[in-house]
């Protein structure tokens, strides 16, 4: 990397404090370090301006009154029934869709890796998963309205063919269950995509070694396979959780602002200060960061425990 080095070097020097005749080794190293750091400055500045500062601004604002005084009142106000219920529904939908996505995604990944199905099924499912995991947002809501909405294909078919009225059971696409089912459409493929390589990494010999040592299939899964897969399973589930927790477009297109989940509440607050306190909006955002952040801390902690047998 010498050429850019020299040019940047000459650009930076002369340093008035530096007597070039006695320039020491350490000064050289220091200068080199400065150059090294300069190389990633654009990235750091970008991350600071468009990722870290905006977030910190909200975090700071959560602890201020509109007049700029320090306060815990915004945080305390988060515990009003309306906001608590929004968080609660969001958390429930996120947990349900991430667990559902994790379980079904796990079985699908298992089926294509270990189930002995033809390879075209595997490549087909993986390709489809790549598409479906990115098929989120507004169009996904449209798809489910057309399928499970009041005049959706499945609803109509169930009614006309077997006389089963889905909506008389209390089902509603604009509810907790409906949102969970919709979210799982991108959660499952994501799980498949992340877990398939992990399952591919399971050596056949582990299975055979456990078998020849007398273990049953169940014992193999309980004592060997699941402990080995645990970090990826857990990590992906928590990723799915954060993914669902922050998602707004699907829910908004599906329900308008009728469903009281945190991202929609925050969206409404940004648009029109429905909470009548801008700083309470910051606190709402802080709450979201804390929850997704916590799920990541939990993931890192659990993984470090589960991975003590790895490097």
């Amino acid at each position: 990397m010498r050429p850019p080095h020299f040019r940047l070097n000459s650009f930076l020097s002369p340093n008035p404090l530096d007597d070039s005749r006695f320039m020491s080794q350490s000064a050289l190293i220091d200068r080199r370090t400065v150059i090294d750091w300069l190389g990633i400055m654009p990235f750091m500045i970008f991350a600071l301006l468009f990722l870290i500062l905006p977030t910190l601004y909200l975090v700071g604002g959560a602890f201020l009154t509109p007049d700029g005084d320090f306060t815990f009142k915004n945080i305390a106000d988060l515990f009003s029934p309306n906001i608590v219920s929004a968080y609660w529904i969001s958390i429930k939908v996120s947990i349900a869709s991430s667990l559902g996505g994790a379980v079904i995604g796990f079985f699908l990944a298992w089926a294509i890796v270990m189930g002995g199905v033809p390879s075209f099924v595997r490549s087909g499912l993986l390709t489809f998963s790549g598409v479906a995991s990115n098929f989120a947002g507004v169009p996904l809501a449209f798809a489910f309205i057309a399928t499970l909405g009041r005049t959706g294909l499945v609803t109509v078919l169930l009614r006309d063919l077997i006389g089963f009225n889905l909506y008389s059971t209390g089902f509603n696409l604009l509810s907790f269950l409906g949102l969970t089912i919709t979210y799982m459409f991108f959660q499952i493929p994501l799980m498949v995509l992340i877990l398939t390589p992990a399952l591919d990494g399971m050596k056949r010999e582990w299975r055979e070694a456990s078998e020849i040592l007398g273990a049953s299939t169940w014992q193999y899964w309980r004592m060997i396979a699941l402990p080995i897969l645990w970090p990826s399973l857990l990590g992906t589930t928590l990723l799915l959780f954060a993914n669902a927790f922050g998602a707004i477009a699907t829910a908004y297109a599906l329900t308008g602002s009728s469903l009281n989940i945190v991202p929609i509440l925050l969206y409404a607050q940004i648009r029109g200060d429905v909470l009548h306190n801008p700083n309470l909006g910051y606190a709402l955002a802080l709450g979201m960061i804390v929850i997704t952040g916590l799920s990541n801390v939990l993931y890192i902690w659990l993984r470090s425990r589960a991975e003590r047998w790895q490097k």
């Binding site: 010999e205 055979e208 070694a209 020849i212 040592l213 004592m223 060997i224 402990p227 047998w309 790895q310």
Partner: peptide
């Protein structure tokens, strides 16, 4: 029956 495999096949989590 006891068996030893080519690629060790020790359980990495134990």
């Amino acid at each position: 029956i006891g068996m030893v495999f080519q690629a060790y096949a020790l359980f990495p989590n134990m």
